[in-house]
Design a protein around this nucleic acid. Structure first.
Ligand SMILES: [Mn+2]
Ligand SMILES: [Mn+2]
Ligand SMILES: [Mn+2]
Ligand SMILES: [Mn+2]
Lengths: 150, 150
DNA sequence: TAGCAAAGTTAGCCCAGCCTAAAATGTACT
DNA sequence: AGTACATTTTAGGCTGGGCTAACTTTGCTA
């Protein structure tokens, strides 16, 4: 493979589905200490059978360690991805929520967008979020403009 | 179906794939007057066979009118979606490009994000884009902060 | 006007990621 | 210990959206 054709940074890219599973497992472990199939399924709105199936793939690919009927823990590489997605989720949510959008709409948009944000774009969005959170004057001005145009 | 469960605005939602096709067909017709299978395939980076196949689906679902070997035109409903996606693409691109990000990275992110943006979120992003384009001081300040953190 | 290259189409295939139904395992209570 | 219920897993199936190989059609040009 010619060097020119290689992805710089060995850009392991995962499907949105895989990212959603790892994000959920990460959040559950963070929040209650463990991640059960039934809760993952509930949070993602899919069947338990689908969750079991994916967990086996995640184990095979080294993102979690899985023991039949016993539960799942995350490997370092799995944790890294889960955290990364949770971070994007948070930045997007805070940015959009600042403008007073309907929380449900925010969540739907965030849940999709979070899988398509490079490091550079994340930096930009973080910057905008910070500026708006630290500069209420600006936010207020923009929100007014937003309302007048709706 | 109870009214409370219905999506307001009859939110017909399409797959990212369908949106990409309609966006491309729209752009090609806008730019050169017609959209050929070979060009759609090239722009989307997929095979001509896949394009033919999808065009037949788009015809069946009323987004385009398709005549074998002769070409494709868009229906009103197809045009509406194509335009909508092109609009999201443009807003995202202008917003991110303003910060001087690598154009290729911008394009990759935009190509994914454009499918997950509600009307309300588009309004917010449009607002941010306009503010930054009309307020170079602010943009400059933010870009400086961006560079110092990288 | 006949041939040829480019464009378009069809046929047959594959994989990710979901589903339901049924079976297996775990747990809590009597 | 036995039994009921919850949880997890397996088996089998389906759809969307891609692929290659082989074909047909179109349109240009010798
Ligand atoms: Mn998501
Ligand atoms: Mn998320
Ligand atoms: Mn796209
Ligand atoms: Mn696009």
């Amino acid at each position: 493979m010619p060097a020119a054709k290689r992805k710089e940074t060995t850009a392991h890219v995962h499907s949105p589905a895989i990212e959603d599973y790892l994000e959920q497992i990460h959040n559950l472990i963070e929040g209650k200490g463990y991640a059960r199939v039934v809760d993952i399924a509930k949070n993602l709105g899919i069947s338990q059978a689908s969750v079991t199936n994916m967990i086996q793939r995640l184990d095979a690919e080294g993102y979690v360690v899985y023991e039949r009927y016993r539960g799942v823990i995350m490997t370092e590489s799995g944790k890294k991805i889960g955290q990364e997605i949770a971070r994007r989720h948070e930045v997007l949510t805070r940015l959009l929520s600042g403008f007073g959008l309907d929380p449900k709409t925010v969540h739907e948009d965030v849940e999709g967008m979070e899988h398509h944000i490079s490091r550079q774009t994340l930096d930009v969005l973080t910057l905008l979020m910070e500026e708006l959170e630290g500069n209420p004057e600006l936010l207020k001005k923009l929100k007014k403009r937003l309302k007048s145009s709706s």
